[in-house]
């Protein structure tokens, strides 16, 4: 019997998810033994036309990392969806929008203006910005670039997704579990996030020192304090998002004195990670005075970047609401 065919693809991503595959170390050999990797642009020389030549459903599974930002990524997502029996959103960007999703605080115009004109490191007196089409003078041949969308989307806001491997990047243990489940045909119901459905606090080594009732009079950032390496970070006034975040990572950040920033996203009962995390933190503030509460909350310097660090596109609002004046191009609905 021939081995199941597997593909990996990247969209708007940093490459960290590809790195996670390498982090499988010797386990990667088991994977290679069991499957045939037939598409993996970062490591192997296959082209889009190779995928186009496949039969529909020819790939047993395809792992897609990165968010969806350009027309080319949309096309690849659609193509890979058609050619794959299982499409798996791999990593925070694909799952929830990830760090690139924070660009939804702006839009294409604002991003282009800054990146190509206003950034202090840019010299561009003619104001040249990339064009989707450039006609070459002599022979009329046109060069094209993908179109850059106004918003970043998750993979499942673009095509149907079967499973999610959360994390920034997904922890090795979860990848191995997922691959094993696929090979042994022991997958949970479609749409499941392939990680435990419990909060990170449950697997945190600092859990024994987490008080039943937390009451915070101060919110600190890691550089502002000497961190006790054993005590619960929230109890030390550090903004740890462990109570709102799905477990499965083994708490590497928290173990290294870094508060959890929420890369695995919410548990299954939560619709909007940022709102839930905000709710969890706000509830712990120990004050009943309006002014004092406002002052304490001011210590959270960047609420969107804090609570939606990995999930703005997947949130209920998806992006920053633009005033009508700044919208062009028929956003009337």
């Amino acid at each position: 019997m021939s081995k199941p065919k597997v593909g990996f693809y990247w969209c708007a991503s940093c490459g960290g998810c590809e790195e996670a595959v390498v982090d499988l170390a010797e386990d990667v050999l088991k994977v290679v033994e069991a499957v045939d990797i037939v598409f993996w642009p970062v490591a192997l020389d296959f082209k889009r036309s190779d995928v186009e030549a496949m039969k529909d459903g020819e790939l047993a599974v395809c792992f897609v990392n990165g968010a969806i930002r350009t027309s080319e990524q949309e096309e690849m997502a659609e193509l890979l969806r058609k050619k794959s029996q299982l499409l798996i959103a791999f990593g925070s960007c694909s799952h929830l929008g990830g760090i690139p999703g924070l660009a939804n605080l702006w839009d294409r115009q604002a991003i282009f203006d800054y990146v190509y004109k206003e950034a202090p490191s840019v010299t561009n007196p003619e104001g040249v910005v990339p064009q989707e089409q450039t006609k070459l003078g002599s022979n009329g041949y046109a060069l094209t670039l993908p179109s850059f969308r106004d918003s970043v989307r998750t993979l499942d806001q673009t095509v149907e997704v079967d499973y999610y491997l959360p994390g920034c990047p997904p922890p090795v243990k979860l990848i191995v579990n997922a691959v094993t489940a696929i090979l042994e045909n022991k997958l949970p119901p479609k749409g499941t996030v392939l990680a435990p459905d419990k909060a990170l606090c449950e697997e945190c080594p600092r859990k024994p020192t987490k008080p039943d009732k937390l009451a915070l009079k101060e919110l600190k950032r890691p550089h502002q304090t000497l961190i006790d390496p054993e005590k619960c970070l929230l109890a030390q006034g550090l903004l740890c998002l462990g109570p709102a975040t799905r477990s499965g990572c083994g708490a590497p950040c928290v173990s290294a004195n870094m508060p959890c920033t929420g890369c695995l996203g919410p548990t299954s009962r939560v619709k909007d990670y940022g709102a839930k995390a905000l709710s969890a933190i706000a509830s712990l503030i120990d004050s009943e005075d309006e002014k004092e509460i406002a002052a304490l909350m001011e210590q959270i310097v960047d609420p969107v970047g804090t609570f939606y660090r990995y999930s703005l596109p997947a949130s209920l609002l998806h992006r920053r609401v633009r005033s009508r004046q700044t919208r062009t191009g028929g956003a009337s609905a």
């Binding site: 027309s71 949309e74 839009d107 294409r108 115009q109 179109s147 850059f148 969308r149 106004d150 918003s151 989307r153 806001q157 673009t158 596109p313 998806h318 992006r319 700044t326 919208r327 062009t328 191009g329 028929g330 956003a331």
Partner: peptide, 8 residues
């Protein structure tokens, strides 16, 4: 958002 948004 599930539809490609028009470009500004």
């Amino acid at each position: 958002l599930s539809q490609p948004l028009p470009d500004t």
